[in-house]
């Protein structure tokens, strides 16, 4: 493989990995706090992409404005999902909320078919992002630079919120012990809503960039990236934000590099992540950066 080719693959992997990482953060935060695998998170990601599309196509908003509005709307959707489908199940067995989230996932997908139709749509890519530059033999898409940088900025911002602000402190407290935190007078439900809002906003950002990078959107576009991002979160150690980003990047690289070096396997692309998941769960269930938990009898 030539150096140019490798750089090309490297950039692809970096983009894909960053996008996985951004989605994975939402999974990891929600799991860290509620011990819930939020199946609907991939569909929230899809909504982000659609909102930008409709902001432009329907309301003729300038692209930049429609991105901001879309992120806000998606965050609102995430919060609503929690309020309606998860909050009533806080005291229920954990699997109930999981089943509820599966229901929400199918609901969002099919409601999107009803409202947006199942026809894939092409997405408008602003010129300055989509114009390919040739540097030597490497085809450089500005997106390949923009996506990792935006992801890095967003992640840093999130880390600042989690480690430097009061709501962030409350989030960390809840993830250690929700009952005690409640007793300390922390408005637990509001903090959880903030968590869903933040996670969904990042998923929206990821969805929007995804739609720019692979410029087509459809109601099921969130399913596979959603699963893979969850796997990335497990890979990095569920509950850890840095781990989620790392897991996302790792998964992106594994996927792209396997295909790059073994093109014959490209048909199996969507299976790599799942194989990896099963292997990880077996050899190190706490992931790369997670803490080990010992069961108390």
């Amino acid at each position: 493989m030539s150096v140019e080719m490798f750089i090309q693959h490297f950039l692809n992997a970096l983009t894909l990995g960053s996008l996985y990482g951004l989605i994975a953060i939402g999974y990891t935060m929600v799991y860290g706090i509620l011990r819930l695998i939020n199946f609907a998170h991939g569909d929230i990601f899809m909504l982000g992409a659609y909102f930008v599309f409709w902001g432009g196509a329907l309301f003729r908003l300038p692209w930049f404005l429609s991105v901001v509005v879309a992120i806000l709307f998606t965050a609102l959707c995430g919060i609503t999902v929690d309020r309606v489908a998860y909050r009533p199940l806080r005291e229920a067995p954990r699997i109930s909320a999981l089943i509820s989230s599966i229901g929400v996932s199918f609901f969002i997908q099919n409601l999107s078919i009803v409202t947006f139709t199942a026809i894939p749509r092409a997405v408008h890519v602003p010129q300055w992002l989509g114009q390919v530059h040739l540097i030597g033999k490497v085809r450089l898409l500005p997106l390949a630079i923009v996506v990792p940088i935006v992801s890095l900025l967003l992640t840093s911002g999130l880390l600042w919120v989690v480690y430097r602000t009061k709501p962030g402190l409350a989030m960390r407290a809840i993830s250690k012990d929700i009952e005690t935190t409640r007793l300390m007078g922390v408005p637990v439900n509001r903090i959880i809503a903030i968590t869903f809002g933040l996670g969904s906003a990042l998923a929206a950002a990821s969805g929007i960039m995804w739609a720019l990078r692979y410029p087509q959107i459809h109601p099921f576009m969130g399913v596979i990236p959603g699963f893979k991002a969850f796997i990335a979160a497990v890979l990095g150690g569920i509950g850890s934000i840095q781990g989620a980003v790392l897991g996302g990047l790792l998964l992106g690289f594994i996927e792209i590099m396997i295909i790059a070096f073994f093109p014959g396997l490209s048909g199996y692309r969507d299976a790599f992540a799942f194989v990896l998941l099963i292997v990880i769960l077996l050899i190190r269930p706490s992931g790369l950066m997670g803490e080990k938990l010992e069961e108390k009898v």
């Binding site: 509820s100 229901g103 609901f107 109601p219």
Partner: peptide, 16 residues
């Protein structure tokens, strides 16, 4: 199209 599964998944949500 899609309405069937919308109703169906809503039914599951109601049950759960």
């Amino acid at each position: 199209p899609g309405m069937r599964m919308v109703i169906f998944s809503m039914a599951l949500l109601f049950i759960i």
